[in-house]
Design a protein around this nucleic acid. Sequence first.
DNA 1: TCAAGACATCGACAACTGTCAATGTCTTTG
DNA 2: CAAAGACATTGACAGTTGTCGATGTCTTGA
Lengths: 116, 116
Amino acid sequence: MPVATLLPLTDVTACCAPITREPLGAHDAETLAKTLKALADPARLRLVSMVAAHDGQEACVCDLIEPLGLSQPTVSHHLKVLVDAGILSRDKRGVWAYYAIIPGALDALAAALTTP
Amino acid sequence: MPVATLLPLTDVTACCAPITREPLGAHDAETLAKTLKALADPARLRLVSMVAAHDGQEACVCDLIEPLGLSQPTVSHHLKVLVDAGILSRDKRGVWAYYAIIPGALDALAAALTTP
DNA sequence: TCAAGACATCGACAACTGTCAATGTCTTTG
DNA sequence: CAAAGACATTGACAGTTGTCGATGTCTTGA
């Protein structure tokens, strides 16, 4: 398994200048779109905000299923999308998998959307 | 035709607190997701940045087709999605339709993603 | 070693999305 | 009025996505 696949699929942190500064190249647009797509879903937005608001800024899947109102496989799927996008981190401790927001990820995304 | 459909389909400006402050409600998540979905496409991201970087912060469809490399109907379609999401405005002058970024729209979106 | 439980993965299916060719609408100009 | 041109709309199609039930994997505790 190549190392690259262990890294976030989309690294928006070092992606591109704010989109209102200069025309976005095709490649940068693809990268930024992938990250935005990961966030552009009601269930995933709620997951991110639930994780952020949880005690210790982390939460396990079992904390998220019931308030979200979706099945366990679906919640796992959404969390995987967010991890692959570099928005959440996953830390397996014992039987539980704890998810947390990667510091700076959302800010980097926001920065790409605005004029500084 | 009810008046409501003339307004932006998603009004993220007055949508919700930053998603990292408190768990997002189902309705707010839906609203925010709709706006993000509008932006979460490479072609539309490039359109937004091309419009922003164009002379006078506005551009007509004919300015955008060739650099984007997509067909005219497809470009029109993407522009409509962005207008419906409240990100771009459309101003028809003569034969041309000029699109511009609605001031504050992207900033409101960015603000919803970060802790202030 | 076995049972229970937390989580991930798989397979399937309906719904949605991006794209284009063809066509329609409306404005300008000859 | 007729022709040309800018843009929107329609219809169709392939590809993607969100969801769930069923099943697999791994850890803990008896």
